[in-house]
């Protein structure tokens, strides 16, 4: 298996302001009734979009100025709630390739790593600054780098936080976990042989 490396992501931003945006909002449960992940992208944030529409407002995922965006920016605890991988899948299929937020739910973060989507952390002030910049420059180009841990934004370079472990995985291709796991099949058998309960469940 040849593993693609995830480093630089270029493109415009999508500002999704708010704390605790949970996976039920990213992709409402009724759209999970699929046996493949195809078609999830067009339903990302469906309920939030509808809710705002009723108030005469436009959600960034529906706003044509952000439609080409690849870098999603949000606030605290992004992706909390259900463990469903459908949420990052929906974002990925919509076109998102990297996320910047103040913090993430752990399962969501892990699901993103598995899909090759880096989730960078920034402080509250920096998140607000990036959000404001994108809102002022909807088609302005941003560029994130896993190796440099930076965001380039309008001639400025902003430091991003990404833990060493996921960063290493993006850079050596091991974010695609299965290949690495399959390589150790023999060791798996020897651990299994040592676990007493392997004999109980018969």
């Amino acid at each position: 298996m040849n593993m693609p490396i995830v480093d630089v992501v270029k493109g415009s931003g999508v500002p999704v302001r708010g704390n605790d945006i949970d996976t039920d909002r990213i992709i409402p449960a009724r759209f999970l009734k699929c046996v493949t992940f195809e078609g999830l992208g067009e339903n990302a944030f469906a309920d939030d979009i509808k809710g705002l529409e009723l108030q005469g407002k436009v959600h960034p995922f529906q706003n044509p100025v952000y439609r080409k965006g690849t870098i999603l920016v949000s606030n605290q605890n992004f992706g909390c709630g259900s463990s469903r991988e459908h949420a990052p899948q929906a974002l990925k299929r919509w076109g998102i390739r990297a996320i910047i937020a103040e913090s993430y739910s752990e399962i969501f973060f892990g699901n993103c790593v598995a899909l090759g989507i880096p989730c960078y952390k920034v402080s509250h002030a920096v998140a607000d600054k990036i959000l404001a910049w994108i809102e002022a420059n909807p088609s302005g180009e941003l560029s994130t780098s896993t190796s440099a841990k930076t965001l380039k934004m309008g001639g400025e370079s902003i430091e991003l936080t990404l833990a060493d472990s996921p960063r290493g995985q993006f850079l050596d291709g091991s974010w695609h976990a299965r290949a690495a796991l399959m390589a150790n099949a023999v060791k798996v058998d020897s651990i299994a042989a040592k676990l007493p309960y392997m004999q109980f469940l018969k």
Partner: peptide, 29 residues
């Protein structure tokens, strides 16, 4: 500890899973 198979290049541990449960929503893919 008793379920750790190996240390991976990523720095993570490879953990043996004793029991895996499935339902119809998250397994087909």
């Amino acid at each position: 500890e008793s379920h750790t198979v190996a240390k991976l290049a990523s720095g993570q541990s490879q953990l043996f899973i004793g029991l895996h449960l499935c339902h119809e929503v998250t397994s087909p893919q």
